Amino acid sequence: MINPFRNTPFMKKGRSYDLGKMSLKQMWKAYLTYPTILLYFLLILVTIGLSLYFYKGFWQTFIPVPVVVVVFPIVWYIIHRWIMHGRWFYRNPITAAMWKRIHWDHHQDPHLLEVLFGSPLYTLPTMIVVTMPIGGWIGGWSGAFSALATALVMTCIYEFFHTLQHLAYKPKWNWVVYIVQLHILHHFHDEDGNYGITNYLPDRLLGTFYRKAKDRPRSPYVFNLGYTLEEAQLYPWVMQRTGAPPRDRPDPARVPKSPKLSKEAS
């Protein structure tokens, strides 16, 4: 697929969608025109249409919505903690590629937008399997599609705030500042905590919430999720796909030299 942002001004040499160098306006543009998000927008319209097509009554269609709103953050926590951070996935040649794409790449370079969004190949089947049976049990096909539509909307909201959490921008709302700080701790201090994006209640209930860096020691695996060079030598499938050894910290952003500096250097 051709990258529509390849030549836009916020692209930096050596890094593609570098959220660390985007303004809020540029982030909005990237988010609202990103293929994965556009696909979710389209599917929201389709699932709402199908829910109305199979409409049998207000409650059958509406009740799945708040149920999914409650269930989805719990499912996200489970997936994030025990699948995305599950080390046994990279130790299996069948699941290593999936593990690399769904989360390891994101921790290796937290500001890279292309790997921040989950691949629809993995996110959509998960949403379907989790939400449609719940909605179907409550309200038949109408409830099933309204439940899936709710999950798609929540995913778009999650992905927006997730993008914002990696942006070099200080939010004006205190709540957004709060969730940004918590997520930054997850990526740059200790990955075994603060698994939420906008909802940290499961973290609080299950003992993985922490508010400040001083609350726990810094993890040596925060960027590689335990896939160290020693592990890569034993289980090489992720490293083979990457084409390089695992990094203990992200590569710094490469800022192009100004014409003046280049001229002086020459």
Rank of each mutant, 00 (worst) to 15 (best):
M1L: 14
F5S: 03
N7C: 15
N7Q: 15
M11Q: 14
K13P: 05
K13C: 10
K25N: 07
Q26S: 00
Y34N: 00
Y34T: 02
Y34M: 07
L42D: 04
L45D: 05
V46D: 05
S51L: 08
W59Y: 15
I63G: 03
V65R: 02
P66C: 03
V69W: 07
V70F: 14
V70N: 08
V71Y: 03
W76C: 12
R87A: 08
W88I: 14
A96M: 03
W99V: 06
K100D: 09
Q108H: 08
L112R: 12
L116A: 11
S119V: 13
T123Y: 09
L124P: 03
P125V: 09
M127T: 01
I128V: 04
M132W: 04
I138C: 05
G139P: 08
A144M: 09
A147N: 03
A147D: 01
L152S: 01
V153G: 04
I157L: 14
Y158F: 12
L164P: 03
A168T: 07
A168R: 00
K170G: 09
P171L: 09
K172F: 11
K172Q: 14
W175L: 11
V177R: 14
Q181P: 06
H183M: 05
H183D: 01
I184M: 06
H186I: 02
H187R: 02
D190C: 11
E191F: 07
Y195T: 08
L206Y: 09
Y210S: 07
K212D: 13
S219P: 01
V222D: 01
N224E: 03
L225M: 15
Y227C: 02
A232Y: 03
V238F: 00
R241S: 13
G243P: 07
P245T: 06
R249D: 06
R254Q: 12
K260V: 14
S262I: 06
